[in-house]
């Protein structure tokens, strides 16, 4: 019943100068999971995501991708399997939305980067999924933050990744866009088996969408496991120092979290 381990981290440590941002993090990411990386500001969520997806090199420890160390893969090769949606998606040049999404095919293309009709078909369906077809020819610099975020998600999907990393990708969006985006990602997760690793700020959203939780505290994994074991009042009180009440919705099976303001 246990799914295969896709990504394994072994005693990951990363220091910015002398300050350790990650300390001895060892995790198994299994195929098809929707992982939520939770923790207060500065706890190392973004650093963990960046090291796992190969953007940052760890100072010590190793990351394995399908049993082989990540650093032995070429960047192009990694980008065919991993896609990242960052928090800040500002773009300085007036590329059109279509051009930006087409860049997602880059790891699969030759040197000149010419897309075949098949590539363009993938680009089209990713843009359709993310609802950005209507402004395909608009300059990405003229879009609102939420629209741009969806364009970047479309670009990430165009990479046809096995693992999708979200680095607080929904933080700048209003609540309805947040939910739309996460619903879309959840569909990819359940229907196409894309493994999702998402650093999230909003505990309620995490409870709604994630199956597994990784709590970070001061660069270390404080606690991890499936929702039934670790998404509870006690752990959240310990990590975030807030008192909450968590119910499991009887129909949807989703967690709902209520903040109890006076008992903190």
């Amino acid at each position: 019943m246990e799914k295969t381990v896709l990504i394994k981290t072994d005693n990951l440590t990363l220091c910015y100068g002398k300050h350790p941002a990650l300390q001895t993090v060892s995790l198994d990411i299994r195929e098809g999971g929707f992982y939520g990386v939770l923790g207060p500001n500065g706890s190392g969520k973004t650093t963990l995501i960046n090291v796992m997806c190969g953007v940052l090199k760890p100072s010590a420890g190793r990351v394995f991708w399908q049993g082989r160390e990540l650093r032995f893969y070429r960047r192009r090769h990694i980008a065919r399997s991993f896609a990242v949606v960052p928090q800040d998606c500002s773009i300085n040049f007036p590329f059109t939305v279509l051009e930006v999404v087409m860049m997602g095919r880059k790891p699969h293309l030759g040197r000149l980067g010419r897309l075949t009709d098949e590539d363009l078909g993938i680009v089209y369906s990713c843009m359709e999924h993310c609802g950005v077809l209507d402004y395909a020819e608009k300059a990405v610099t003229s879009l609102s933050g939420g629209e741009r975020q969806r364009v970047i998600l479309a670009r990430a999907l165009a990479q046809t990744p096995q693992v999708l990393f979200l680095d607080e990708a929904t933080s700048n969006l209003d609540i309805s866009h947040k939910i739309d985006l996460l619903k879309l990602i959840k569909r990819l997760n359940t229907r196409q088996g894309v493994t999702v690793i998402a650093a999230l700020h909003d505990l309620n959203l995490a409870g709604m969408f994630c199956d597994y939780f990784i709590y970070m505290e001061k660069g270390q994994v404080a606690c991890e496991g499936p929702g039934d074991l670790v998404f509870n009042e006690k752990v959240i009180k310990q990590i975030f120092n807030v008192q909450v009440e968590i119910d499991k919705h009887p129909v949807t099976g989703k967690y709902h979290l209520t903040l109890l303001p006076d008992s903190g």
């Binding site: 960047r75 192009r76 990694i78 960052p86 300085n92 930006v100």
Partner: peptide, 12 residues
């Protein structure tokens, strides 16, 4: 031109 991190994520 989208930034170093974006470039790395896209395999450059």
């Amino acid at each position: 031109s989208l930034g170093s991190n974006a470039a790395r994520q896209l395999g450059v």
